[in-house]
Simulated assay, not measured.
Amino acid sequence: MSTNQRLHVLFLHGFTSSARSGKANFLKDQCACLPHVDFTIFDFNPTPKDFEYLTVTGMINRVRQFLLERTWDKVFIIASSLGGLVATRYARQFGGIHQMLLLAPALFYHPWGTSQEQIAQWKRMQVAPVDHHGFQKAIPLRYTFHEDGLRYTEPVPPAVDTTIIHGRQDQTIPIAYSRDYAAAYPHKVKLVEIDADHRLTDHHEFLWKMARPLLHP
């Protein structure tokens, strides 16, 4: 089967996650049984220094460069948390995406869980430590992340058919935002609600159950 006849699944991880994401690697393992699917986990921060200078715009541009360097015809994006913001913005700005599955997505930028006082201190210091799950330690993050994020405070209309899986107990990114998005674009967005928190840790089998029918040739 030629490259252009295959379905290329690109997984975009969340803010403090990495290419070692449990969800991503579980789905990659399941996709191994589908001969027409190639599964790639994109790593936005392979080193702590990459994370220190992270911005949403930079994430979008890195995905753009990655796809420009390939001749993929049919691209399916699965994106988690902040990866959802990158995915929706990328698809709207550049196109070329076949379909998307978003997992507890951030559909717009908001300094989740960060107070105004903390943001002011971040601005003064120009850097703040962030507990990074992927590196399993605190990593500095430049204030430019917040400055750049303010460019993305509104969700964009879905560019392609989009399925969202979001947990009702998500205290990081409230499910209300996904509900509003699905209600605003009922012909493009399907929301699947489950009893889970933001990480969807115990629901990998369900994620695969929902993803598998979407990954048709």
Rank of each mutant, 00 (worst) to 15 (best):
I194S: 13
L191E: 10
D195L: 00
L207C: 05
I164N: 11
V156Y: 11
A159H: 13
I173V: 15
D170A: 00
P174C: 10
A196W: 01
S178R: 06
I165S: 15
P155F: 02
F206S: 05
T201F: 01
A196Q: 02
S178Y: 04
D161C: 07
D170C: 03
Y185L: 05
T172W: 00
Q169Y: 12
D180Q: 06
Q171V: 04
E205V: 05
A182L: 01
E205K: 12
I164W: 03
A182Q: 10
G167T: 12
D180E: 12
D180L: 00
V189A: 06
P186E: 03
A183F: 07
D202K: 09
P157V: 04
G167V: 02
K188D: 03
H203Y: 01
R168L: 13
P157A: 15
Y185V: 05
L207H: 03
L200H: 07
Y177L: 04
P174G: 10
E193H: 02
I173G: 11
D180S: 03
I165A: 15
K209M: 13
I175E: 03
P155C: 06
V160L: 05
V189K: 04
T153S: 13
D180A: 00
E205F: 02
K188V: 03
H198W: 02
Q171F: 02
T172V: 11
K209S: 14
V160A: 08
R199Q: 11
K190L: 02
L207R: 05
D202A: 07
H166P: 08
